[in-house]
Design a protein around this nucleic acid. Structure first.
Lengths: 245, 245
DNA sequence: CTCAAATGTCTATTGATCTAGACAACTGTA
DNA sequence: TACAGTTGTCTAGATCAATAGACATTTGAG
């Protein structure tokens, strides 16, 4: 007998969205691997104790994400299930580690500005608020789907040509090298999870209500002097973070 | 001029809940530290481009969580702001590191069983599927609020008295010591974020639509032999994870 | 071909969410 | 005391979410 799976009402989260989340989780857990298909709409409606139309709304949302594809007469086919694993270690470089998981990786610079450091950035980089920093905003994608958006901050007095070098070399590591910094390590990372805001929704091509994993990390040179502070926001349903100690 | 903060409609997540999430985030970011109060309801309604009643629903939800308290005639006072920071490093022990952030920590054993290892657990622990493992399920709280639920798995042949020793000593480290294991280190951790399921909602006292951070971690002895595999789920709006490399 | 099983589409109705406006009640300051 | 600024409460209407039922369309198996 199928156990009745509880969904809650009047909580500000529509039933179809709660059900979409549950089905997405079941897919990534491999619950439907035997058939490669989601159970029929009527069966799901029974399990969750809701109308079939409500289940259809949930499946439509998952189809929109590209996770499933409904075929009339047959059923709803699972198109994709795993999350890409992103490594976090003392020497994380973005393009490494993803290599074997996605065929084609791209990091695109979408904006660069020189701005006065805000309190948070200044504290992290160990400079005074208002000191100039260079901000790079990038979007990274794997196989054509956006995986993360990042804002990175560099002390402008030490790395004045950061934006130009990054644009030319397409690599933070090489842009550092062009300024005479040959090595750097990750000093700390803090991770929180929250709902995506409107900008993140559009840049990561997420549907509203989606979750982002935000990692704030600080890189330092071998003397412990901070060289980069970055806030990366990952599409939580496409990525997992792997901590390597 | 206050920038218009966008919230999205027809997304399955009620506006009041999106706004509650945004205000919660602003509080934990310290955006309102100057006054210790949330901006007036009319100001928030303007910022988010919604009716004042919608903002009131959001604030009512935050008041229900104990995060703010409305006082007629004065405003809405912030009662509590920080997320507890949970350290992840080579030698993380739960009760350490939280020490100064919360006054009183409790870890409660809610169930223990000996079960055959499932594929995932067996792979992680380097044993055969079906080999006996001891599963401990615990809930940890800080200052009376649940922070995480965990399921931990130990090879039963090596640590046969894990449940009893943990119950007696209230510490995994000491229970390991009682089996003759004096030191162990964290080998790897994987982090994902997703919506909480029904069980997590009730055990962590979350409202539906809430987010959990799930960390799967593997601890090994000094020879690199796995001794513990655990899945911890943290209430994302109360915690951040801090990676120490 | 026939039929069962599955998804696709339509209409109608109910309850929850959001907007709009008005006014009451309370607080701190001038 | 008077007043500006704030939260509390009420009513009414518009829009969205969910239910209910009926029937069409497509697929695969017998």
């Amino acid at each position: 007998m199928a156990m009745r799976k509880v969904v809650e009402r009047q909580t500000g989260v529509a039933l179809w969205r709660q059900i979409a989340d549950r089905i997405r989780l079941a897919i990534s857990n491999g619950d439907y691997d035997a058939t490669g298909m989601v159970p029929p709409e009527t069966a799901l409606a029974g399990e969750f104790g809701v109308n079939r139309h409500t289940v259809r709304s949930a499946l439509a949302a998952l189809a929109e994400e590209g996770l499933v594809r409904a075929v009339q007469g047959r059923g709803t086919i699972i198109e994709r299930k795993e999350r890409v694993s992103y490594p976090i270690s003392k020497r994380t470089r973005f393009s490494q580690g993803l290599g074997h998981q996605v065929k084609e990786i791209g990091t695109r610079l979408i904006a660069h500005t020189e701005v006065p450091a805000t309190g948070e950035v200044a504290t992290a980089l160990g400079i005074r608020p208002g000191d100039p920093v260079i901000e790079l905003r990038t979007v990274s994608s794997g196989d054509g789907r956006p995986l993360s958006v990042s804002s990175s901050y560099y002390p402008a007095h030490r790395f004045p040509r950061m934006a130009e070098e990054f644009e030319r070399l397409h690599s933070v590591t090489k842009a550092f090298a062009a300024h005479g910094l040959d090595d750097y390590v990750r000093a700390s990372t803090e991770i929180v999870a929250r709902h995506a805001d409107a900008e993140e929704l559009s840049m990561l091509q997420l549907s509203p209500g989606a979750i982002v994993l935000e990692a704030q990390s600080l890189n330092a040179d071998l003397n412990g002097i901070p060289v980069e502070f970055s806030r990366s926001r990952f599409a939580a349903d496409r990525m997992k973070l792997r901590i390597e100690t």
